[in-house]
Design a protein around this nucleic acid. Structure first.
Lengths: 190, 190
DNA sequence: TTTACCCTACCTATCGGAAGGCAGGTTGTC
DNA sequence: GACAACCTGCCTTCCGATAGGTAGGGTAAA
């Protein structure tokens, strides 16, 4: 359990996540990881025996981290509409990072779903479901406090965010993604 | 220019499109194609020298075919809202085909954008742009005939459709995608 | 009609390289 | 000395791609 500076295992996961968010799972190799981290390919295998095991660790970490951030949004003392804005802002932050070409980890993996084994595919599904639950909670709250119109489905919010990341990344960048979010909020407002 | 029964070249493109829509570009190999079509790997290379060349042919065909279908929707004598429903229905049709696990060709390729050379990436961008234009035309018409609320952006429609295909394919299937479409139409209605 | 030629479509065989993964040795630290 | 972290070196499999050959159809001049 060494923690000297930055855990090599953590650095591997960081690089892997970055590469998958930009290039996709099947376009990322153990060599890419070892080159980026500065160790040998076999050393990556020391930390993650198989690619599937690495993806699993990555998804579990991503789920926990993302849920923690979403939790903060949900627990804040603001209107439902403001929470929705902040929630969507989380996805915008991803696209604004680095070279402005990063998508959601699970948004990428869902495209390559058949390259995943079932345990990992289940984690992707779990990510989407817990996000649907979070969005539903926000929509319910907004309907109650009168900031959002009642009777909206959370599915379209998730679809617009995931699809928006992919399409904006290809053309238009963060500005276009912001436009999509603005339009989405407007349509869901009371 | 033989056309005996079904052109081998066409059959290769058909299989390639199906595989990419379900598994993605990087998960599809020349061997997959040759196995499915029933010829040898080298024979696939006879029709398409490189993988990039094949993707290019695929995207050009897809663009033409899709635009033809969209044109029919645009030219029909119905309200803007009905046109929007029919346009969204085109994406639903894709998901309802076969094993109900097919996404939009360009929706898959945009996730694997960095695996494409620039000429092919440009074709993906072109597909999205021409669809944005089509949606804009539908929204404008709906705003004029009073069936759709004015001032809507086409970006969110495309994002919701592309993202909806990917997420619904992972969980919920065509029913969930239909829900997304219904919600989208409702929000854009006057 | 024959002969020569070219073309398309497909084949076998093979290439160099990159992929994921494993065996086993070395180093550094508690 | 135990253990984790990392190494060299290698294996197998698969990838995209190429070389070179075969069979059959079309064409056209002698």
């Amino acid at each position: 359990m060494g923690t000297a500076k930055t855990d090599t295992r953590t650095r591997i996961l960081d690089v892997a996540q970055d590469l998958i968010q930009r290039h996709g799972l099947n376009a990322m190799s153990f060599k890419d990881l070892s080159d980026a981290v500065g160790i040998r390919k076999a050393s990556v295998h020391h930390h993650f025996a198989t690619k599937a095991e690495m993806v699993r660790a990555l998804l579990e970490r991503y789920q926990v981290e993302f849920q923690q951030i979403v939790r903060k949004v949900l627990d804040s003392k603001v209107s439902g509409k403001t929470k929705l804005k902040r929630y969507c802002g989380l996805f915008l932050q991803t696209l604004e990072e680095g070279d402005q070409d990063k998508s959601c980890l699970c948004g990428m993996l869902v495209a390559e779903l058949y390259s995943l084994d079932e345990p990992e595919a289940a984690l992707v599904r779990k990510f989407f479901r817990s996000n649907i639950d979070s969005i539903q909670a926000i929509l319910d709250e907004g309907a109650q406090d009168g900031s959002l119109s009642p009777g909206s489905s959370p599915d379209i919010v998730l679809a617009a965010l995931e699809g928006g990341l992919l399409t904006a990344r290809c053309d238009g960048g963060p500005e276009r993604f912001s436009t999509i979010i603005r339009q989405l909020i407007k349509m869901l407002s009371a």
